[in-house]
Design a protein around this nucleic acid. Structure first.
Lengths: 412, 412
DNA sequence: AGTTTGTTTGTGAATTTTCACAAATGGAAA
DNA sequence: TTTCCATTTGTGAAAATTCACAAACAAACT
C-alpha cells in the first residue's frame, strides 16, 4: 500500500480562505466551502470559469434553494451525510449545476460543512479523493469554532420559538425585532405542525428533512414542534402552504414509520395558517388539539392532520365539557343501548355506520355485511325506539354529534 | 215590565248550605254550588234522585275531570264565563251528566264560582232564570271570603313556584315539606313550559285552559311560565307527559293566535322532564333556551317546542361563543360568500337548502325551483370552491353547523 | 307443542340518484 | 362582432333507493 503524501502539511494553521485556494490549486479546479446550513464560508479565488450554481452561491452567500432541493431529491445529501468519502456528482443542467465532487466535513457523526470542487478545468478522478479527504480533515478545526457559534445561535432561536409558542410576546413589532437580532427571516405566512412518536429520536430521524426545508423546530418530550412557513405571500396562500405541510408530513411520516417500533404510533397534526406572529400560540394550540383528537378518534381521522379538516371533531371536547357542566345525559342513545343489551341487537353500531356513511344505505349495508332490507328494517326500528326522524338533517346531525361525544366516555 | 219578586229577601245572611237548599226548593230540583276551581262548596240536601255527575262531584268534593274536560270542549264554560245569564245544558249521557242549568257567580269580571241546578224533578224554564240570577248575586258575598283565602293561597303558591324556578331550595325534602304546607300535590314527573306573546294578556286568554288542567303558573312580563306534570308515574312516563304538553300547547297556541295582534308572534318552548324538584331550574332554563332558539331560527324550528327536539340548535349559542373566544372565523364559508358576491350566484343558499334537505337532491332542486342537473353542477362547484367533500358526513355535519352558526351573526 | 314476536332475507316495481355527454344561454373579454 | 367561460337545461342509461309484501328463522312465552 503506497503511503499517501500529506498534502496539507504546511497548511495546518492556514485560514479557511487560504485552504480553499490550496485545494483549488491541487485539484486545478474552483473550490467552495460551505457550512452545514449551506452558507458560504470560503471559495478559491482563481475564478476563471465556473457554472451558474457556484456563481449564485457566491453572490448570495448561500447555495440557492432550487439547487439544494434538487440535490436532496436526488439523494446527494443523503450520501454525503452518511459516508466519509467524496461523492461524484454528474452535471444537472436544468439547475445550472456543472459536474463536481463534494465531501462532508465531519467530526464524529456531526456534519460541520462541505467542500465542493467543480470539475471544469480538468477531470477529478478517484486519485484525487485522498486530497479531498485530507482537506476535509484539515477544515474541521476551522469549522468547529463556527459550529460552536452556530449551535449557540440555534439554541437562542429555539428559545425564541418557545417564547412564540407560549405567547410570551404580545407585540408583533417586538417579535420582528427579536427575529432580526437572531438573524432569522420569518416567513410571511406560517403554521405550527407537531409530530409525535413515542420512543423515537424524532430530531435524529427527521434531521435531513428538517435541514432540507430549513425549518425552525424544537423537541418537547416525544413531540417535535415545527414552524413551517412560506416567505412569498402568494395569492392562493393558504393552499400552497398546506400542500407544503402535507408534503412534508408524507415524507416524514413515511420515514418515521419505518424506524418506529411496531405497534407504536406516529401521529401528526397542524394548526391553521396565520400571518401575524402573535397568533403563533393559536396555531400551536390548534395543532395540539388536532393531535388530541387524532388520538381519541384514530380511525375517524385517518389521513387528517390539519385542524381545519377536523370538522365536527373540532367541537367535541368543548361540547362534552359543556354537557357535563349542564348535567345533561343523553336519553335517546341510552334507550338504544339498553335495547341492544336486552335484545342482543347491534342497533347502535348500525346507526353509527349509517351516519358515518352519510346516510347511504348501500355503503352502510356493505360495511355491516347485511342485506339492504335488513338495514332498512333496523333503521325503522331505530327511528321507533329513539323517536327520531333520520330524514331530518337537524336530528341526523345532532345524533351524529351525540354519538361521537358519547364515544369520548368510552361508553361506546 | 212586571216587578220580579225578591226570592231571597229573607236569606240575605243565610249560610251557603242553607242557600243551596232554598234554591233547590224554589226550583224543586237538586242544586250544587262550586267555586271557580270546581271544588264543591255546597249542595241541596233533598237528594232523592240525581245523576252520576252530581253524585261523583259530591263524593269527590270536586267535579270529575272528565266532566270538566267535556264541558270545556263543548264550550259550556266559555259561555258561563262570558255571560251573566244561566246556561241551559242538554244531557250528556256518555259522561253521566243529566240535563241541567248553570250560572256563574261573578263579581265584576271575576268568576267566583257556579250554581248548578239539575233538571230532574221538573223542567227548568226561562221563567226560572231570574231565580238563578238572584241566587248568584246572593252567593257572591258568601264566596268572596273563600275567594280571598284562595287568592292569598294562590299567591303563596306562585311565590313558591318562583322559588323553585330560580333554584332557591337546594333540598328535595324541604321542597316537599313546603308543598305540603301549601297543600299542593306535586306531580311525580314534571317539566316547565313557557308561552310568550308580546302584548297579550296571556293569563286571561289561557285562563280556561289553565283551570281545566289545574296547572301551576306564573306570569313574567310577556311570558307565562307553567309547571306541567303527571301524577301517576307510568311506564312510558316521558312520552305521556310530552304528549300532554303538546296537546296543551296546540290548544293554547290556537286560542292565542286568534287573539294576538296580526304579525305579533306567539311562541312556546318547554324543558325536559324531571322527577326531582331541585331540577326545576334546569327545566326552566331549558325552556328559556328553547324559546331563545325559536326566536333566532323560526323557520328551522317551526313546530318544535321541546328542548329535547332542538337537535344541533341546542349547541349553537354555546359554539358561537366558543368560536368568538377563540377568534375563529370561518374561511370556507367566507370564500363561498365572496364567490356569490363576485359572480351573482346563490351557492350559499343552494348549499344550505341541500343540507337542510339532508342531502336529497330531489327535494333540494324542488325547493330551489331549479333543474336537478343544475343542482348537481352547483354542488360540484361548491365542493371545488370550498374544498369540501359533501359525501363525507363529518364535513357535511360540520358545514351544517358552521352555516347555522354563521346565521346567528345575521351575516347570512 | 304451538304461538307469538322480532329479526333477516328475498322479490319486484316505482322512484330517485348518479353520471356522461350535449346543447342552449348570457355576460364579459378580445 | 366573435370568442370564451360559467351556468343552465336536456337526454339517456346504469345504479341506488324506497316501498310493499312474503317467506324463513330463532328465541321467548303459553
Amino acid at each position: 500500500m503506497p503511503v499517501e503524501p500529506n498534502y496539507f502539511q504546511q497548511y495546518q494553521h492556514a485560514d479557511i480562505e487560504e485552504l480553499a485556494d490550496v485545494i483549488g490549486e491541487l485539484l486545478q479546479n474552483p473550490i467552495t466551502v460551505e457550512d452545514a446550513d449551506h452558507k458560504l464560508i470560503a471559495y478559491s479565488s482563481h475564478g476563471e470559469s465556473t457554472d451558474e450554481a457556484r456563481w449564485s452561491t457566491i453572490m448570495g452567500r448561500r447555495v440557492p434553494e432550487k439547487v439544494l432541493t434538487r440535490l436532496w431529491k436526488d439523494g446527494v445529501f443523503q450520501e454525503l451525510l452518511t459516508q466519509d468519502d467524496p461523492v461524484h456528482i454528474p452535471a444537472k443542467d436544468e439547475i445550472g449545476l456543472g459536474k463536481r465532487v463534494a465531501i462532508a466535513i465531519r467530526r464524529g457523526s456531526d456534519v460541520l460543512g462541505y467542500i465542493w470542487a467543480q470539475e471544469v478545468n480538468r477531470p477529478i478522478t478517484r486519485d484525487d479523493d485522498e486530497i479531498l479527504r485530507q482537506a476535509a480533515r484539515v477544515a474541521v478545526s476551522r469549522l468547529i469554532q463556527r459550529q460552536g457559534k452556530r449551535k449557540a445561535e440555534e439554541q437562542r432561536r429555539k428559545e425564541f420559538l418557545w417564547e412564540l409558542l407560549l405567547g410570551n410576546h404580545s407585540s408583533e413589532a417586538a417579535i420582528r425585532q427579536k427575529a432580526d437580532i437572531l438573524q432569522m427571516q420569518l416567513p410571511t405566512s406560517y403554521l405550527i405542525c407537531i409530530i409525535e412518536a413515542a420512543g423515537a429520536r424524532l430530531d435524529q430521524y427527521l434531521y435531513p428533512l428538517l435541514m432540507r426545508d430549513k425549518l425552525l423546530w424544537v423537541v418537547d418530550g416525544s413531540q417535535i414542534i415545527l414552524l413551517i412557513g412560506l416567505s412569498d405571500a402568494k395569492k392562493g396562500k393558504s393552499d400552497v402552504l398546506i400542500r407544503k405541510v402535507e408534503q412534508f408530513l408524507s415524507d416524514s411520516l413515511g420515514k418515521l414509520e419505518a424506524h418506529v417500533t411496531e405497534g407504536r404510533q406516529v401521529i401528526a397534526g397542524y394548526g391553521r395558517d396565520y400571518k401575524s406572529y402573535t397568533d403563533i400560540v393559536k396555531s400551536y394550540r390548534e395543532a395540539l388539539h388536532a393531535l388530541k383528537i387524532k388520538k381519541l378518534f384514530p380511525q375517524e381521522n385517518e389521513g387528517v392532520h390539519g385542524y381545519h379538516e377536523l370538522g365536527i371533531y373540532r367541537y367535541l371536547l368543548q361540547l362534552k365539557q359543556w354537557e357535563e357542566e349542564q348535567g345533561y345525559q343523553n336519553e335517546r342513545l341510552e334507550k338504544l343501548r339498553q335495547y341492544d343489551r336486552e335484545n342482543q341487537t347491534t342497533l347502535l353500531t348500525t346507526l353509527e355506520t349509517f351516519l358515518d356513511a352519510a346516510g347511504k344505505v348501500n355503503k352502510t349495508a356493505e360495511r355491516l355485511h347485511i342485506h339492504i332490507n335488513t338495514l332498512s328494517y333496523r333503521l325503522r326500528r331505530i327511528e321507533e325506539i329513539m323517536r327520531v326522524d333520520l330524514d331530518n338533517m337537524n336530528q341526523r346531525a345532532a345524533l351524529y354529534l351525540e354519538l361521537k361525544i358519547a364515544k369520548l366516555d368510552g361508553e361506546q
